[in-house]
Simulated scan of single mutants.
Amino acid sequence: MVPIVGLSVATIACALERSWFWYQLLSQEDRIVHDVLDAARYDLNEAGAIAEKAQTLPIGRFLLAPLRLRNPSPETFRLAMEATGDKEFVQMRKGDKLLETVVAVAPLLGLLGTVTGLIGTFNNLNIGGGGTTQQATAAAAGIGEALITTAAGMVVAILALAVFRVMVSLQARQMDYFSEVGNELELIYRQVWYEPAIADENYVPAAAMSGRPIADGN
Rank of each mutant, 00 (worst) to 15 (best):
41 R>M: 09
74 P>Q: 14
42 Y>N: 11
6 G>E: 03
98 L>E: 06
89 F>N: 00
40 A>V: 08
26 L>P: 01
104 A>I: 09
26 L>A: 02
80 A>P: 06
107 P>H: 05
51 A>S: 13
110 G>P: 07
14 C>N: 10
81 M>R: 03
6 G>P: 03
60 G>Q: 06
22 W>D: 14
106 A>S: 14
46 E>Y: 13
55 Q>H: 05
93 R>H: 04
55 Q>Y: 04
98 L>D: 06
19 S>Q: 13
45 N>F: 09
21 F>T: 00
7 L>Q: 06
17 E>L: 12
4 I>H: 03
73 S>A: 08
46 E>R: 15
74 P>V: 15
109 L>T: 05
51 A>Q: 10
69 L>V: 04
8 S>R: 10
90 V>K: 13
59 I>N: 05
40 A>E: 02
41 R>H: 10
25 L>D: 06
76 T>D: 08
59 I>T: 08
96 D>C: 08
79 L>E: 10
24 Q>C: 15
84 T>N: 02
20 W>T: 12
47 A>R: 06
83 A>V: 09
101 T>D: 10
25 L>Y: 01
19 S>C: 12
99 L>D: 03
53 K>Y: 07
91 Q>I: 07
36 V>G: 04
98 L>N: 03
108 L>T: 15
60 G>N: 06
19 S>R: 13
106 A>R: 09
84 T>I: 04
88 E>N: 01
106 A>H: 06
17 E>C: 10
5 V>R: 02
34 H>Q: 15
84 T>G: 00
64 L>N: 04
109 L>K: 08
52 E>N: 12
7 L>C: 10
77 F>Y: 15
60 G>H: 05
38 D>T: 12
63 L>P: 03
31 R>H: 12
100 E>S: 15
76 T>S: 08
23 Y>C: 11
79 L>Y: 04
32 I>H: 04
64 L>P: 01
34 H>V: 13
55 Q>K: 08
62 F>R: 00
85 G>L: 00
15 A>K: 03
93 R>L: 02
81 M>Y: 04
37 L>W: 01
108 L>A: 15
17 E>G: 11
10 A>C: 10
53 K>C: 06
97 K>N: 15
82 E>K: 12
69 L>F: 02
102 V>F: 11
